[in-house]
Amino acid sequence: MKSNLYNHTFFISIIAALLLCTNGIAQQIDLSNYSMRFVFKTVKQADNSRLLEVSFIGFNDADRKDKLPVFGAEIQFLNVLNDEEIILGSSKTSKEGTAQLILLENQKYATDEQGYINLKARFNSTDALSIEEADIMVKDLHLDLNLSEIDSVKTVTLTAFTINSLGDKIPVSDLDVIINLNTMLSKMNINEGTIIDGTYTFEMTESFSGNTKGELTISSIIEENDEYGNIIQEKKVQWGTINKQVKFNDHSLWTKAAPIWMYVLLSILLLGVYINFIYTIVNLVKIKREGDNIKTEPKKNYTVY
């Protein structure tokens, strides 16, 4: 499901879907004791697309728990080089106050001499809210996740590099990385470490069941790195020790179909009874026929007994 959505992310992310809403009340409010927080983040995702996310929330200065997510604010995402601004796209904030934009892998970015991409998110001022801007500088880091069994030891190998203007791979160092096992509802941290000279390896000794096909989804994450931002990489591998599958019986007391003997018994009982009803009715019809015959025949003297 995830990958499906990501394939159309660009479109989907800017299409505004309707919120089903039964009630809403608008009221004017004094915003002076709210301070607005405008946070901009970027993640390079497993399919090498880049997610830009802005969170735009007003916090009450007196009561930090009282927050007002800004809803429906148009956020522009830009790629800046020197004084030039290239519009990447725009999106509206959700009820949580977040606006997102997903840029596909083949998106070209303008980079400065050091290889930094300068990204900017902007909210244009309205009568009530003033202009907000935030920018991030990131380098495009390539993270390769390699899962293989070396001497029958399950080994996770990570390589991290950037590509310079000549197209050469340049390994990077000193990157903290987390290795996770992705499951249906959460990620389980199985290892943490640091990438040195462009690589990091980790031997997986623990065994996990994985999904029903025996697949594990391993992901590696670099978080909020000053130079590279956030990068996620993930892969599937046949390392699971499949759990014994509990298969339900199709003919039990709680399934749709009943145990066979129940059908048999019930049919026998019902048939037995209803055949008898029919037999009775047939006999009644015979009695009636006889009665009708008597009536049509000329009156005779009957010996009743």
């Binding site: 008898n276 009775t280 006999n283 009636k288 009536k295």
Partner: peptide, 24 residues
């Protein structure tokens, strides 16, 4: 009364089916 005339056959027939019905 479905033309019941209390003839012997009718009577026997009725008795027979009443008896099976009572068992059922």
């Amino acid at each position: 009364a479905i033309g019941y005339q209390d003839t012997k056959t009718q009577r026997d027939r009725l008795h027979k089916i009443t008896r099976t019905m009572s068992a059922i």
